[in-house]
Amino acid sequence: MTANENNTNGYLVGTTLERMLKAGHFAVTGELGSPQSAHGEEIRAKAALLKGYADGVNLTDNQTAIVRISSIAAGAILVQEGLEPIIQMTCRDRNRLAIQADLLGAYALGMRNLLCLTGDHQIFGNHPTAKHVFDIDSIQLVQMVADMRDKKVFQCGDEFKGIEPRFFVGAASAPLADPLDFRPYRLAKKINAGANFIQTQLVYDVPAFAKFMEKVREMGLHEKTSILVGVGPLKSAGMARYMKNNVPGIDVPDEIIDRMTAAGKGEPWFGKKNAEMTKEEKRARSKARREEGIQVCIDLIKELREIEGVAGVHIMAIEWEKAVKPIVEGAGLYPRPSV
C-alpha cells in the first residue's frame, strides 16, 4: 500500500460495524451524549461504560440544537480510548464547505463511521435566535459523502488529489412518522443516495414497526442496506407518556406504559404520593422503575430481532449510558463477536 491509497481488504471501509454486519452478526450500536462544557474527561468516563458493549458509538452533533462538545472532537477522544465512533453530522450548522472540511479532518483523526442527519431545528435548542444553514439536506449529505468515497470527488465535482475520506455511511429513518405511507420510500431514497446502514428513530410499537418492515422487504430495501432499529430504556411511565404525546413518530403502547406504572408493585412505598415518601423510598422507586425500563428494552430487542430484515439494534440511553451494559447482556448480545 502506497501512502496515497486506502486499503480496505474488500470492505467499503472496514469498520467493526461494517465487518459485524457483513459477517451477518446482529449489530449493536450505542450513543454517547457529549457534555455542554469542555469537560473531555466526561466523554472518557462514558466511553468506559460502552467499551466492549457496542460495535460503534454515536456521537451527537449539537443534539436538539443545544451546544455541546462537537461530535468530531468527541470522536477523537473515543478513538484514543479504543472505541469506534459513529460521528453524527447535521445540515443545520454547516454548509457543504464546512461539512466536507470537517469530514476530511475527522477521517484524518481516525473516524470511519458517519451518520448523516438533517438536524433538529434550532428553535428547540438553547440558541433559538440563531441563523440556520440547511444548505443541503440529509439525503444530499449521504450522496455527497458516498461520492467522496466511491467517486473520489468533492461535492462540486473536483477530484481528490490525495487520500479520499472513506466513511461507512449511515442515515436515519423515522419509520412511524408522518406521512406514514411515504416512509419506506424516503428510506429507499436514502439507500439510493448511498446509505450503507440505517439507524431508526426509537421504536416501542413493535407491530407498527413490523408493518413498516413488511413494506421494506417487499421493496427489497433490507438487502441493500443494514437496518439497525432504535431502542431506548424508559426511566418512568411519565417519560413514556411524554414521548407518546410529544415526540412525532414515537408511539408508546399502553402495555409498556402499564408495565412502567406497575414497577415496584408490592413494595411498601408503591402508590404513595411524592410528599409522603422518604428519600430512601424515592431512591428505591427510581431504581425499580429503571430496572423495569431496562427489562422492557431487553424484551423489545428480543421481539424486534425476530423481524426479518432487522440487522441490529441502536441503543439510545442518552445520559444513562450505564444502562447499555445490562441491556446488551440481558438481550444475549454479549460478548460481542470478534470480526
Binding site: 438533517t118 431545528h121 439536506d137 440529509s138 412518522a177 408522518d178 424516503r186 413518530g249
Partner: peptide, 26 residues
C-alpha cells in the same frame, strides 16, 4: 418547510403540522 428540505418530509411533522409550531402546516 422550516428546514427548506428538497427531498421530502423530515419526520418531525405530526397531524400535518410542522414540529416547530402547531400553527405551521408541514
Amino acid at each position: 418547510c422550516s428546514k427548506s428540505l428538497l427531498n421530502g418530509p423530515c419526520g418531525g411533522s405530526e397531524d400535518g403540522h410542522c414540529e416547530i409550531d402547531p400553527d405551521v402546516p408541514c
